[in-house]
Design a binder for these strands. Structure first.
Length: 921
RNA sequence: GCGGAUGUGGCGUAAUUGGUAGCCGCGCUAGACUUAGGAUCUAGUGCCGAGAGGCGUAGGAGUUCGAGUCUCCUCAUCCGCACCA
């Protein structure tokens, strides 16, 4: 029988489904292994070609681990809240739940055709109320917790209240939005509303007025990682700055732990580095500069306390709250003029004009704490509101931005670190000797900085501190298709719903658009209030809400009483291997770690980090093909001849091209204007040019995995995708070469058959030493490759083994069945079929992984390459028993060695056993 | 500008610890089978050279008996961040 992949794949997919082979349960008698894919957003376009790459890799590993005796959790679901479904709903009026359901069906059928070993019993989508109930529940917990810096842990807000009752803010070391100061007496006298507003300053989920990335086109606020180059990642619309009241998660409280935690994780260095940069830790000092003739201070963060004697002006960001209070009467107009110019500039314009120097003097001065000199306070738009304190001490001699500003406005530049030439440029190196610096003269940069910090602590005007670039995550979206907040308002103050009232399900609305008053779509819902009549929050949660804790829910997805049971969590612990794209480095992978750490703090989950090992699959790029049309004609020139003519390249559908050779007949039929096209060929063929580009319909380079499954089968597609190259490398989606893999599977099939494939046959004869050697070196190599996720090399190992066994015409059961088990993780359908043809009744999924026997691959002799001065000249086979001396004698006795020696005496002979022989002449 | 990664035949890639550079596959060339071939099978295929041989892992230097692999410099490509004080 020929290898009929269509029949085989359909048959086994049905059997696997009916017998629930992939169902997993907690089983304390077996070691667990949790391998997870980043779940997809079910878009209308269907499964993206990049998706299968990661899914296939994780599926291979899951199957391998199972055969190695692990109880493997390998679930799949959908990240089904999101903007595209809502945009579609706005256009068509169709409820996003309906289009989402349709898209999920399509995804599911595409996934099913690839033969994945997902446990579909655990499937859920983030838009299921039974799931988002726990997203809302977690939000409530965040609201009722604050972060204690001393314990480095989230604590119940009740603890904070009792601290306020006893001590006010005295001795408080907690994460907060602003530094507040009040006594216990003052706290007790606060009204209920005042107390609630104070507490928002500490809650891990809080509402506050902030500058946000507002996308008018989407009618929605976006997180920093959802904005690239001032355009929305989804849709590519312009984004501007707007001051709005927003729910925010205090992710920054966890900055230090998010940074520290990276060291223990098996993630690749580039992702860790991206996260480190994103968190952006810098050590320095917090210093308060007293304002002349005022009680107020300008608070700054600096990484260079050693340069404090070089300060020549202070610079505030344009949004700074001090500006109104300190600007002198005579400067007011000019400052107001400046602010109106700068603040209204969108981010795009600011970025575009980054080089332009803009600033204005406030008329006010601070007093230098050590020299008592007055120092002017400026407003500068290069100072960012969102970082540090929004104000800096400017040291032009040692900071290039300050330098440019000082030059432009003619401010003094005072050298305080020796080693540069400050007449030409700022000397920014963090090394050198302090000069012109009073008590730190002669010290190096590091010691000088430390001495300054000691002095400011003594003077009670500051301290050494650590600052992070990581900002709190804005959590409100002015949108319909997301989780409703379990929040209502009483006198404008937010309170959480009772946990019993969850889930708070999405209400029906007449339109998915903002109201005429500009309120979010939920404001359209009738009766969007609590049973006591208090109004509910009208924003919904962002896309990353549902994906931040989904891996925990897979452990116990049908639990109606809790997020997940303690038992399930203690068994499954956390994700051992997480597979997905590197584009989530600063979004999902930070939020999920934050979410997990919080749940860990409150004792819900038992592991501090959610994902032990991370595999980043590379991006799939498109490969376009081109034809070359002679300008002004309907004649097309083949690639090799095109330079002889004046041509324009045109995209041609890659489905009309095979191995860059154009199917001319199909091309003529493709579009009416090509029906009468003429061709200038080379060697009788029309060869197309090609280029790597983004995959898109307009470039005619989209290839659908379904078509390839139809043509070659899932096993071929699975193996081909792995064969393309290392999993983490970005690579073109190029189907040249898929035939080679398909041919391999046909050869593999042939091993198990005789008489021209007409009859299944396995011999029960004892395998030869040679056959055993092939099997066992394959076991070793494939196993090692699996362990290090090197699936491309494993595929070629299978090809080598198959070629070698075909040469030997091996048909031994004891060789071929273990080989089928090895291959089954890669090509589950064909191997399951052969396994059953061989008389097995159980699934190959449950077969034991073959055990490597080193004695089968031991060499009795080795073919040594013999080189002279490192250049290989000949090969000789020697027994591995020989001593170095014996080997040396044999080598020198060899006639050809003597020829290469050319009567010279070798200076030295290097023999590396079982490796090489090198003769130094 | 800062940080990270990558660079090997016509193409995708391999070489796990410094030890025969180019495995496996595509493509290409030739042959067999065939009514036919964009099917299948067999052989060949890094470059230069008729050959002996020489040259080859982005380029240059170095360490070493020996370097794709280690060190330094340069270049190119990709990714991330980008007034982060």
């Amino acid at each position: 029988m020929e290898y009929n992949f269509r029949k085989i794949e359909e048959k086994w997919q049905k059997v696997w489904k009916e017998t629930e082979v992939y169902k997993t349960d907690v089983n304390f008698s077996k070691p667990k292994f949790y391998i997870l894919d980043m779940f997809p957003y079910p878009s209308g376009a269907g499964l993206h070609v990049g998706h299968p790459l990661g899914y296939i890799a994780s599926d291979i590993f899951a199957r391998y681990k199972r055969q190695k005796g692990f109880n493997v959790l390998h679930p799949m679901g959908y990240d089904s809240f999101g903007l595209p479904a809502e945009q579609y709903a706005i256009q068509t009026g169709e409820h996003p739940a309906i289009s989402t359901e349709r898209n999920i069906k399509r995804y599911r059928s595409q996934l099913d055709r690839l033969g994945f070993s997902f446990d579909w019993n655990r499937e859920f989508k983030t838009s299921d109320p039974s799931y988002y109930r726990w997203t809302q529940w977690t939000f409530i917990q965040l609201f009722h917790h604050y972060y204690c810096n001393d314990l480095q842990k989230a604590k119940p807000i009740a603890d904070l209240i009792s601290h306020f009752e006893k001590h006010g803010t005295e001795q408080l070391n907690v994460a907060s939005t602003n530094l507040l100061n009040f006594t216990s007496e003052e706290w007790k006298e606060f009204s209920e509303n005042e107390k609630q507003n104070v507490l928002l300053n500490y809650r891990l989920a809080y509402i506050a007025e902030t500058w946000v990335n507002w996308c008018p086109k989407l009618g929605c606020v976006l997180a920093n990682d959802e904005v690239v180059n001032c355009l929305s990642v989804r849709g590519g619309f312009a984004v501007e700055r707007k001051l709005m009241k927003q729910w925010i998660l205090r992710v920054s409280a966890y900055a230090d732990r998010l940074l520290e935690g990276l060291n223990k994780l098996q993630w690749n260095d580039s992702i860790k580095e991206i996260q480190r940069n994103w968190i952006g830790r810098s050590e320095g000092a917090f210093i308060q500069f007293p304002i002349q003739n005022s009680e107020l201070t300008v608070d700054v963060f600096t990484t260079r306390p050693d340069t404090i004697f070089g300060v020549s002006y202070m610079a505030l960001c344009p949004e700074h709250s001090l500006i109104d209070k300190i600007t002198t009467q005579e400067r007011k107009d000019e400052v107001a003029q400046f602010l109106s110019e700068v603040i209204n500039l969108s981010e795009v314009e600011r970025a575009a004009e980054a080089k332009k120097i803009r600033g204005v003097f406030t008329g006010a001065y601070v007093i230098h704490p050590f020299t008592n000199e007055p120092i002017p306070i400026w407003i500068a738009d290069y100072v960012l509101a969102g970082y540090g304190t929004g104000a800096i001490m400017a040291v032009p001699a040692h900071d290039s931005r300050d330098y440019a500003f000082a030059k432009y406005f003619n401010l003094p530049i005072k050298e305080v670190i020796a080693g540069g030439d400050i007449t030409k440029e700022a000397f920014e190196a963090k090394e050198g000797i302090c000069v012109n610096s009073s008590f730190i003269d002669g010290k190096n940069v590091y010691d000088g900085g430390k001495a300054v910090i000691d002095k400011i602590i003594e003077k009670k005007i500051g301290h050494g501190t650590v600052n992070y670039r990581l900002r709190d995550a804005i959590f409100s979206r002015q949108r319909y298709w997301g989780e409703p907040f379990p929040i209502y308002y009483k006198d404008g103050v937010p309170y959480t719903l009772d946990e019993e009232e969850l889930p708070l399900t999405l209400p029906q609305v007449d339109k998915f658009l903002p109201t005429e008053q500009g309120e979010p779509p939920l404001a359209r819902a009738e009766n969007w209030k609590t049973k006591d009549g208090y109004p509910l929050e009208t924003c919904t949660m962002p896309g990353f809400a549902g994906s931040s804790g989904y891996y925990l829910r897979y452990m116990d997805p049908h639990n109606n009483d809790e997020y997940f049971s303690k038992e399930a969590n203690e068994y499954w612990q956390n994700v051992d291997v997480y597979v997905g794209g590197a584009e989530h480095a600063t979004g999902h992978l930070i939020y999920a770690r934050f979410w997990n750490k919080f749940l860990f703090d409150i004792g819900l989950c038992c592991r501090d980090e959610p994902f032990e090992k991370l595999i980043n699959q590379g991006m799939i790029q498109g490969r376009s093909n081109f034809v070359y049309k002679i300008i002004g004609t309907n004649t097309f020139v083949s690639y090799g001849e095109k330079d002889k003519y004046s041509v324009i390249p045109l995209h041609v559908d890659v489905n009309l091209v095979k191995n860059d050779r154009l199917n001319i007949e199909k091309f003529k039929q493709w579009q009416p204007e090509f029906a009468n096209a003429e061709f200038i060929l080379e060697n009788g063929k029309y060869i197309c040019g090609w280029e790597m580009e983004k995959m898109s319909k307009s470039k005619f380079n989209v290839q659908n995995p379904d078509d390839l499954v139809e043509k070659y089968g899932a096993d071929t597609l699975r193996m081909y995708e792995m064969f393309l190259g290392p999993i983490e490398l970005s690579k073109p989606w190029d189907t040249n070469g898929i035939e080679g893999v398909h041919r391999f599977l046909k050869k593999f099939w042939r091993l198990f058959h005789q008489n021209d494939n007409s009859e299944f046959y396995l011999s029960t004869d004892k395998p030869s030493a040679q056959e055993l050697k092939i099997l066992h070196k394959t076991i070793k190599k494939v196993q090692d490759d699996n362990e290090r996720f090197s699936f491309n090399t494993a595929v070629s190992t299978f090809m080598i083994a198959t070629n070698e066994l075909l040469d030997l015409q091996c048909n031994k059961r004891d060789i071929l069945l273990p080989l089928a088990i090895l291959l089954s993780a890669y090509a589950p359908h064909i191997t399951e079929e052969l396994w059953h043809l061989a008389g097995n009744k159980n699934s190959i999924v449950d077969a034991n992984y073959p055990i490597f026997d080193a004695s089968c691959v031991e060499e009795t002799s080795h073919i040594y390459p013999i080189s002279f001065n490192g250049k290989t000249r000949l090969q000789r086979e020697f027994s591995v028993q020989l001593t170095q001396k014996e080997l040396e004698a044999l080598v020198l006795a060899d006639a050809e060695v003597q020829k290469w020696l050319d009567n010279k005496t070798p200076k030295r002979i290097i023999i590396v056993p079982k490796k090489i022989i090198n003769i130094v002449v």
